[in-house]
């Protein structure tokens, strides 16, 4: 039987696991290096190359991938940054060629609505379930377990068993 202490314990262990996972660092496989005229450009290069997804190798960003297309996109990103393009302009340029797909953080729109709202909805659902389970078990405890009628049935079952 799940009681509230058991639930509190499992929540604690889940939180610990999440904390550990969030500490894991993302490693960047930088393949070629570019000389930037300022460190803020380099900072933006890092940010954008992590957000842009490699179209060929779909589970990597262009900073991680060694596919030819990812190299091309990194070069392009470097050129555009040095030419003074804004983040918005660069992302628009990429999206107009490769589709919204190329961003790991797609724009909030009708197509991506599910993508953005699903985690929130699932979290809310989980919280509701958690609370109803907690309340149910507390009620059970308050009622002192089982009723006299249930106890009688239980005794009978045990008797039959032996």
């Amino acid at each position: 039987m799940i009681n509230s202490r058991g639930i509190a314990h499992s929540i604690r262990s889940i939180l610990c696991t999440l904390l550990l996972l969030s500490c894991a660092n993302v490693s960047y496989a930088v393949i070629e290096t570019y000389e930037f005229s300022s460190s803020s450009l380099e900072q933006r290069y890092r940010q954008l190359s992590v957000e842009l997804r490699c179209p060929k190798c779909q589970n990597q960003n262009i900073a991680d991938s060694n596919a030819p297309i990812a190299q091309d996109l990194r070069k392009l990103l470097y050129k555009q940054l040095e030419a003074g393009a804004s983040d918005e302009e660069i992302l628009d340029y990429m999206v107009s060629r490769y589709g919204e797909f190329v961003r790991y953080k797609p724009r909030f729109s009708g197509v991506t609505l599910m993508l953005w709202l699903m985690p929130v909805a699932l979290l809310l659902g989980a919280i509701i379930i958690l609370f109803s389970v907690l309340r149910g078990s507390r009620k059970e405890e308050a009622a002192g377990g089982i009723s006299a009628e249930e106890q009688r049935q239980l005794d009978k079952l045990l008797e039959n068993d032996t």
């Binding site: 179209p55 060929k56 297309i69 392009l76 060629r97």
Partner: peptide, 8 residues
């Protein structure tokens, strides 16, 4: 290729 959105 880039303008066409070619990725391979």
């Amino acid at each position: 290729g880039l303008d066409l959105g070619v990725f391979g």
